[in-house]
């Protein structure tokens, strides 16, 4: 049962990584840049949700929607102000700018919200009454006669991840805008010749990625409830790793990479060493990239002449 428990925790953590990795992979696919500020968008989303729920007593769902709105706008604004002017600049300049945006967001959060950790409220609870008639806050469900305890956050995280993944696959394979996005990621010039507005498509991609980051932020802080301005950076790096692991640019790759990374991390913590878990995660990445440099589901493009 403990094994199953760890596995579920791993899948849940992996689902969060996967949702973040989607933002990395979609933006990379279309703008061919690594948006290292993506992790910090998670943090902003978590703060917005925290303030909406804890300070202004709004219902958690409203908090999540508010966080998504703010992050979507933030994503679009960052792209317009910081990345769009560098569209034809060398990729190193864009990379450094992304790191700059990351520090800017962290420090802005430090100024606005201070470095005092905020305790994130768990929204995934059910208020019930026990046998004695006292109100009880239930945050998990017991399975197999109490041998397996699964929190609602875990269940919600996995479910939300599945829904997001299906929605994105549907969007990119069935809708006009989604197909235009794929066309842009292959050849921007040819996409323009089709009449596709490439700048608008890139904005849309940043908007989607950042909106997903907000969801990931709320889920992450519901599971690990300490919120500080650097909350987003480590999950951001892990999710970036997951995206590379699965094959950057590939949406199913982000899911696979995220899940594997989460499971490996939890198992490493449980069975090997808590301190070494990150080292183990990154060692696995190195081995995978040695064998498959394009990542697990990365596309090897063959061109015909």
């Amino acid at each position: 049962m403990t094994f199953l428990n760890y596995l579920i925790s791993g899948i849940s953590l992996g689902s969060i990584y996967a949702i973040i990795a989607l933002g990395y992979t979609m933006v990379y696919g279309i703008a061919k840049m690594l948006n290292f500020a993506h992790g910090d968008v998670i943090m902003v989303g978590a703060y917005i949700c925290f303030y909406a729920v804890s300070r202004y007593s709004l219902p958690p769902l409203v908090g999540v929607i508010l966080a998504m709105l703010v992050c979507t706008v933030l994503g679009i604004v960052v792209e317009r102000l910081a990345y769009k002017p560098l569209r034809s600049a060398p990729s190193l300049a864009v990379l450094i700018t992304a790191i700059g945006v990351s520090y800017f967001l962290q420090n802005a959060a430090l100024l606005l919200w201070s470095s005092n950790p905020k305790v994130f409220p768990n929204a995934f609870v059910i208020n019930t009454i026990d046998e004695a008639g006292n109100p009880v806050v239930q945050s998990s469900i017991d399975l197999f006669g109490g041998q397996l305890k699964v929190s609602f956050v875990t269940i919600a995280t996995i479910a939300i991840c599945i829904v997001i993944m299906l929605a994105l696959l549907w969007f990119t394979s069935k809708t006009r805008l989604g197909k235009a996005m794929r066309a842009c990621s292959e050849d921007k010039g040819a996409a323009q010749l089709m009449g596709i507005n490439v700048n608008a498509t890139i904005s849309m991609t940043f908007a989607i990625g950042s909106g997903l980051a907000a969801i990931a932020g709320v889920l992450l802080c519901s599971a690990y409830p300490t919120l500080v301005p650097t909350t987003g950076s480590m999950p951001g790096i892990k999710a970036f790793t997951a995206a590379v692991f699965g094959g950057i640019g590939s949406i199913p790759g982000a899911l696979l990479g995220g899940l594997l990374l989460g499971i490996i991390e939890i198992f490493a913590k449980a069975y090997i060493s808590t301190q070494l878990s990150d080292a183990i995660v990154f060692a696995v990445l190195i081995v995978v990239l040695l064998v498959k440099p394009a990542g697990l589901l990365g596309k090897q493009i063959r061109e015909k002449v």
Partner: peptide, 16 residues
């Protein structure tokens, strides 16, 4: 668009 299907390529042609 090499990674898209034949039909998707044609659909992109009719984007406007």
């Amino acid at each position: 668009f090499l990674q898209m299907t034949v039909q998707e390529n044609l659909e992109m042609g009719a984007y406007t």
